[in-house]
């Protein structure tokens, strides 16, 4: 009886250990994958390769340019919603300086980078996994090998660079549009003068906070794209793996964005 009880516990411990080891190994592989791509990016050899630049331009067009109308639409609604929460609250507290502080904390530092990363993840993320996964299934990775082309440099690097660049630019646009639209609507409703609103927002936003937004706007899309490409690279030759890997990619990216955001907030709290 006692032996059976111990055996059951040993089995559970083995399972937990196995899962933990697999998780650690996956994290290590993800780290190795992303760091090899970042290493290639920093070496800058790719900038002299027209084939890589062609892929980069296509990815920027698909991720950034085609995503622009959606970004504007989201920014319009997010700006209006945020300002209609912030301004009445600041007025009720009889402290207009709260407008700038809250806009900076909520919209600029948190909403903009997270919303834009989620937008990139939903719009381009699944497409990235599907495209790369299909390339593996069609054997195009073998073809690239046979031509002496580095998969990391030709397939993965341009997509990561495009995600990071588009993430940054779309986030800045998102912030600008949402603040302007929010301010214009508030002025239209005679709640506050538009110029006064902009001054309050400017007062409440420091350079450090802008830099934090820039960092997040670069980091979150990089994390998303790294995770998506990592999952896409593991599709193998089975088409059934594409939706599975896409799901893992999207969920993994979401979890990582939240974890990194929390870590940044904790880090700032400690500083």
């Amino acid at each position: 009886m006692y032996r059976d009880y111990m055996a059951a516990w040993n089995l559970r411990a083995e399972r937990v250990g196995g899962v933990s080891l697999r998780l650690l190994y996956d994290i290590y592989q993800f780290y190795a994958f992303v760091s090899s791509i970042l290493g290639l990016a920093l070496r800058l050899k790719w900038t002299a390769r027209p084939a890589v630049i062609n892929v980069l331009i296509r990815q920027i067009y698909f991720t950034g340019v085609e995503g622009l109308p959606w970004t504007i639409l989201i920014a319009l609604f997010a700006g209006v919603t945020a300002m209609y929460q912030v301004v009445p609250f600041a007025k009720s507290m009889e402290d207009v300086s709260l407008i700038g502080t809250l806009t900076s904390s909520l919209l600029v530092q948190e909403m903009a980078p997270v919303l834009m990363s989620l937008f990139l993840l939903t719009r381009s993320g699944v497409a990235v996994v599907t495209e790369i996964g299909n390339m593996h299934i069609r054997g195009e990775d073998t073809l690239l090998h046979s031509l002496g082309i580095d998969l990391h440099e030709y397939l993965y690097l341009p997509r990561m660079v495009a995600f990071a660049l588009c993430g940054l630019i779309l986030t800045i646009l998102f912030v600008a549009i949402s603040i302007w639209i929010g301010g214009l609507l508030i002025a239209w409703n005679h709640e506050m003068n538009f110029i006064q609103f902009l001054i309050e927002v400017r007062k409440g936003t420091s350079v450090g906070e802008m830099m934090l937004m820039t960092g997040k706007a670069l980091l979150f899309p990089l994390i998303c794209c790294g995770m998506l490409l990592f999952q896409a690279s593991r599709v193998g030759r089975n088409p059934n793996h594409i939706p599975v890997r896409a799901t893992y990619g999207v969920l993994g990216s979401l979890v990582m964005i939240v974890v990194v955001d929390v870590l940044i907030a904790l880090g700032r709290g400690l500083i």
Partner: peptide, 25 residues
């Protein structure tokens, strides 16, 4: 020359022919 795959599906035939040259630069 591979039996299963001779070209990248998302590139034009011209780009496919020139691909190794465009990559090795």
């Amino acid at each position: 020359m591979l039996r299963q795959r001779g070209a990248m599906a998302n590139l034009s035939l011209r780009e496919n022919l020139l691909l190794p040259f465009l990559y090795h630069a």
